[in-house]
Design a binder for these strands. Sequence first.
RNA 1: UGCCCGGUAGCUCAGUGGCAGAGCAGGUGACUGUUAAUCACUUGGUCGCUGGUUCGAUCCCAGCCCGGGCAGCCA
Length: 462
Amino acid sequence: MLKATSVKAALASSAPQDEILVNGWVRTRRDAKTFSFIELNDGSCLKNLQVIADAGLPNYAEIQHLTTGASVSITGSLVPSQGQGQKWELKAGELRVLGGADASYPLQKKGHTAEFLREISHLRPRSNLFGSVFRVRSRLAFAIHEFFQNRGFVYVHTPIITGSDCEGAGEMFRVTTLDLLNVPRTPEGAVDAAQDFFKRNTYLTVSGQLEAEAFACAFSKVYTFGPTFRAENSNTSRHANEFWMIEPEMAFTDLAGNMDVAEEFVKHLITDVRQHCAEDLELFSKFVDKSLLERLDFVVQRPFQRISYTEAVELLRTSGKTFEFPVEYGINLQSEHERFLTEQLFKCPVTVFNYPKEIKPFYMRLNDDDRTVTAMDVLVPGIGEIVGGSQREERLDVLLASMERHHLDPKDYGWYLDLRRYGTVPHAGFGLGFERMLMFVTGVGNIRDVIPFARTPGNAAF
RNA sequence: UGCCCGGUAGCUCAGUGGCAGAGCAGGUGACUGUUAAUCACUUGGUCGCUGGUUCGAUCCCAGCCCGGGCAGCCA
């Protein structure tokens, strides 16, 4: 049997070909006098392959009833197109209909909203927009590995089921095999976790950072890239309950080095997608965000703006702008504050660092001023926080004091404290939200539209 | 979770206290190397659900369900 040629390969052909096999789905069909035009797409690229099905084909009556969505297998010759708009077309010698699609097929040639397509998540990858989104998603994932592998980072798989319920990054989903209709109790009436599968409480991970630190203290440079789960009841365009996160962790690295890597990383991802997904990005810049390409190029060309939290607060206070939430030292920056900095004041990505210790987690390294910790957030226009990270506290006594301030029990963090007891080193890392990065490079405004089958509060269909 | 907006044909949307509408998609035919083809005709409805007001409700009112936007939580 003839080996199949993808639509992408057929369109890129440098010469006519006598006999090729192409499989795919019908995007649309038009009748000419003695033949039928079929637009064939197989997901290999945005473009369709134009197929000429001659009236002389034995099953021409069947072909004339092909509608959008049907699957076909075609053998024929690749010949120069007689019409405008495409270089090659496939002259069908045999056209087999694999699966029809009747009038109830929900996808049409045009006119669908993202909201409607979300309700048919199983079919929307067959649309132009979502085809492009998920091709870029695939490439972006590859570019992430490439960036770190080229720089000597070791890829580490941190656990998805975790026993730590105090990582502090958000509400957690419980993992249990207990019978919910007959939960075992302790004499005090609490749920008896000792009878659960792992003989303790377990949850889905909200971050692989703590485990990544352990590996960084062995391999020097590591990164994680995997799913993350947060049980927050968030209803916004940039939050999902299941998302992917990249978390590099680097030994012998301080806050400045951390910010350098984060900036280089973000730029590399944009450059890579710009290079390898040009056609898909064209679609986004045409139909999703007209200023997309300009913005991406701008971000790659310019250094990110770096300001301390203290400077950020001053800039906001003296900006002359009235905010719904007044700015003062010690508050968490609100969305409106971040947007102002990155969209109006600097008009580029902004890295804010050295936050007050009171509003940041226990593991961040205390600065010499005793007021701030080495936190850093990278904010980008349109999305807000895309990276959050810090230099980690490597001094055992300072870490213990921090845990006491945060009302954490050192007994729950024995192995984490061991990393400071045995050969401790300065180290730093950050988390980058994969989907938020994907939103940034595609211009797509809702996180639900860059995840194949999104999980959000009240929605786990598919 | 709070505030705001919406739900009418497969899709995108008009509309009115008194017979339910258009474009696209589907069907039939015409025309045609077309490419969001074009032209004519045509099929297609629990007007989100429940209750209330009314002679009469898709329209007005209440509750509920679903979707979206913004905010918080954060990546």
